[in-house]
């Protein structure tokens, strides 16, 4: 259910409404990033983050360390 696709935040476009431009494979779309902002991650710090985009919202941040860890596990299973 729920198509989601990774994209990278390249610019904060509207501080007040928490909107940012996200790049998906060279295609850009403005998305709402309210869900990934908190005290530990103020809006200004979000540029460069990879997020999962669903219906114009960033659903969650993607964690590079965890992704690598999954790939390491996969490598271990399949070696």
């Amino acid at each position: 259910m729920c198509l989601g696709i990774p994209g990278q935040i390249i610019e904060i476009t509207d501080l007040q409404n928490q909107l940012a431009m996200v790049d998906v494979s060279g295609v850009k779309r403005q998305v709402n990033i309210a869900c990934i902002i908190d005290d530990a991650h103020p809006i200004e710090s979000c540029v460069g983050d990879w997020v999962l985009v669903h219906v114009g919202f960033a659903l969650n941040r993607l964690d590079e360390e965890e992704a690598n860890e999954t790939l390491r596990i996969l490598a271990k299973i399949t070696q």
Partner: peptide
């Protein structure tokens, strides 16, 4: 790649 991006979205 860009066409793929639009398709994925």
């Amino acid at each position: 790649e860009e066409v793929k991006g639009v398709c994925e979205l």
